[in-house]
């Protein structure tokens, strides 16, 4: 009887970088669930700081990887995989990645410096909240009354978007100085 050859997975430096960044995002994501929230659905979303830094430092493709890995692995760790929370989280991530992708492509067309972390962050936060709310409307609470929450949720999204944007930009300035 011959032994099957051992399975070897080859990882590139890119893979390892993405894995490390995703691990960082997952850690922040898990820590953040311990924070009390004033309103269901309102979270600072500090893990998105990592997504933004990755986007601005390594590009959109890496940001997609890091963000989706965070959603999947984070939900496995918290125990919310395939629950409604997970659906909302995934919808938010996909919506914000789509908007970030679009903004990332269009950004070189903007004269001057273009968008910085804060601009991307606000766009991502608004898209995240929008995506979540659409999925919540379709799957969880099929009633238009849900949209009455929109103003408060969007206000929170803008505020937290600005905060994460400023944090991301400070990190980027720090990284680029080294």
């Amino acid at each position: 009887m011959t032994q099957p050859p051992p399975l070897r997975l080859h990882s590139t430096p890119d893979d390892r970088r993405i894995a490390a960044l995703a691990a960082l995002a997952i850690a922040i994501h898990v820590l953040e669930t311990a924070l009390p929230s004033p309103l269901p659905g309102v979270k600072p979303g500090l893990a998105n700081v990592i997504t933004l830094v990755v986007l601005l430092q390594y590009g959109w493709r890496d940001a997609v990887w890091v963000s989706l890995l965070r959603v999947f692995a984070g939900s496995l760790l918290i125990g919310s995989f395939l629950t409604p929370t997970f659906a909302l989280s995934l919808a938010g991530a996909c919506a914000s990645l789509a908007v970030l992708g679009l903004a990332w492509r269009l950004n070189p067309l903007i004269p001057g410096q273009g968008l910085g972390a804060v601009g991307f962050s606000i766009l991502a936060a608004l898209a995240h909240m929008g995506g979540q709310l659409i999925i919540a409307r379709l799957l969880i609470i099929p009633h238009d009354g849900l949209f009455h929450l929109l103003p408060v949720l969007m206000t929170a999204a803008v505020l937290f978007g600005i905060v994460s944007g400023i944090i991301s930009q400070s990190i980027l300035i720090h990284i680029r100085q080294e």
């Binding site: 001057g112 968008l115 910085g116 804060v118 601009g119 608004l126 944007g165 680029r176």
Partner: peptide
């Protein structure tokens, strides 16, 4: 050093747009 500013001018436009959007939503 590539970028030392926290906000670019495009960022400020996005912030203003968001600040216009919010009262409209309310």
């Amino acid at each position: 050093m590539i970028r030392t500013k926290i906000l670019t001018s495009a960022d400020i436009i996005v912030i203003c747009a968001a600040l216009v959007l919010l009262p409209w939503l309310y």
